[in-house]
Design a protein around this nucleic acid. Structure first.
Lengths: 148, 148
DNA sequence: TAAAATGAGTCAAACTGGTTGACCGAAATT
DNA sequence: AATTTCGGTCAACCAGTTTGACTCATTTTA
């Protein structure tokens, strides 16, 4: 077991997390930059893919930004027909977000690159490690939700 | 093994990483904000604690920013006597960075909060999961270093 | 049914954290 | 002696974000 009483071990774990996350996001950032898009664009299409027909408010909560920060990139995605924003049947104030066919392809292409990185790393680290990695990340994420 | 061929599994893994990292950094961000400091300040003291007497150039490489971006927060840390910048004996162009006693206490207090979160999560996830989590993060980090 | 609240969107001003580029001075290397 | 390296600084600028104020349509409520 990792001895978290040991400062050097603490530092190693934190450093690994820092560089690990950085490596993971670097790949996508690079791809996005080539298309003149930002991380927010990716997150938007990612969450719409994951939770189809979510509302703008729900998306804001997932992203953890203000609506002003979301406004421009989301509008752009709608303008270039990657995202559809359709009024809800049950509550016409709400706009439900969904990916267009193009949008779905775009989101997949972004995701594929990151998955390729994960696959490489997973192959190296092995099944047990991967399950543990996911379990810890999920547990960490849960604390977040509770904190909000 | 996580089936990375399955889009839903891909999305789950990516989302867990996203929220996990966010939860991990949120605690420290909050503490830093109270003291009027930023993440860069934390990273600086973190890396100085991890690699005492590292040079400015080495620190820049670890942080992955320009020297202009490092300049102001580092200067601030020196001004408030959390960091000492001392000319190297062997090469007087280099300034070697070290934490003052206050700086060491400050870095520890930041780290302790993050470690508390890790401990809670580790207790929940168990030893095997934790080792796996670390192994995958380390493997991810390694890809980064190679890419640079 | 009138008043209040909610969801979405927009404009403007400001701030943060970063960038590129141009320098400088001291010290080391060639 | 010339060049390179290390650290530092100034300036302009840029992206992404925030806060705040406001509108409009719709839904909820009192």
């Amino acid at each position: 077991m990792l001895d978290l009483k040991n400062p050097a071990t603490q530092q190693q774990a934190m450093e690994a997390f820092f560089f690990g996350y950085q490596a993971f996001t670097a790949k996508a950032d690079e791809m996005l930059e080539r298309r003149g898009l930002s991380r927010v664009h990716q997150r938007i299409v990612f969450f719409i893919a994951r939770y189809p027909n979510l509302s703008v408010k729900e998306l804001l909560a997932l992203l953890g930004v203000t609506k002003q920060a979301l406004n421009i990139p989301l509008r752009q995605l709608v303008e270039v027909h990657l995202v559809n924003s359709v009024a809800s049947e049950t509550d016409k104030r709400k706009r439900l977000l969904e990916l267009t066919d193009d949008g779905a392809r775009f989101e997949q292409s972004l995701r594929r690159e990151q998955v390729k990185l994960l696959e490489r790393v997973f192959a190296e680290a092995g099944e047990t490690a991967v399950n543990g990695w996911l379990a810890v990340n999920l547990a960490l994420g849960k604390t977040q939700v509770l904190a909000d």
